[in-house]
Design a protein around this nucleic acid. Structure first.
Lengths: 79, 79
DNA sequence: ATGTGACTGGCAGTCCGTT
DNA sequence: CAACGGACTGCCAGTCACA
C-alpha cells in the first residue's frame, strides 16, 4: 500500500523519467545525448540522478525525447 | 494564423508562468521567495526571465505555488 | 555502451544597497 | 512592493580518461 513517504530526490526522479522515456524510444545514451546536444557522460550523470540540471537543458532533453516538458514532469511527479 | 514562430526563451516563459500563478495566489515576491526558501532578488530575476534556474529550485517554487511541476510546465509549454 | 572521479570556467544563487 | 546593480561563493555545465 503504500503510498509513499520519503519521496526520492527530484534529480533521481527526473533521471529515471528520462531513462524510461529514452528506452521507450529505443535510443542509447549516446543517441539521445547527440540529439539533445549535450555530452554523453553528462547524460549518464543526469539519468543516475547526480546532476541538478537547469531549465535550458531540461528543455533540450524534453525536445530530444519528443515530449513536452509538462509530459516529462508528469512522470517526474508520479515517480 | 499563425501560431508560433519564434517562441520566447524557456526562462522567460517559465518566469511568466511563475508570476501569473503567484499573483493568482495574491502573494508578493517576498512572500513567495520566503515560502520557497529562495532569495527575494533571485525570484525577481527569475520572473523577469534572466535566470536559468535548476531542478531543485523549480521543485521548491512549484511547491510554494501549490501546483505540481507538470501543472507549472503546462503553463510554460503553453506560453 | 555506460559508470565514475576529477577537473575548470562560468553562472546559479545570496546579499548588500538604491531607485 | 518590484526592478536593478555590484560583489561574492558555491555549484552547474561541459569535458576527459578509464574502469
Amino acid at each position: 500500500m503504500g503510498k509513499k513517504k520519503g519521496r526520492a530526490d527530484v534529480r533521481e526522479r527526473f533521471g529515471l523519467a528520462v531513462k524510461v522515456r529514452r528506452e521507450a524510444l529505443g535510443l542509447t545514451q549516446e543517441d539521445l545525448a547527440a540529439a539533445a546536444g549535450i555530452h554523453r557522460t553528462y547524460l549518464s550523470d543526469v539519468e543516475r540522478g547526480t546532476r541538478n540540471l537547469s531549465l535550458i537543458n531540461v528543455e533540450r532533453l524534453a525536445a530530444a525525447l519528443q515530449v513536452t516538458m509538462a509530459e516529462l514532469f508528469a512522470a517526474v511527479d508520479a515517480g
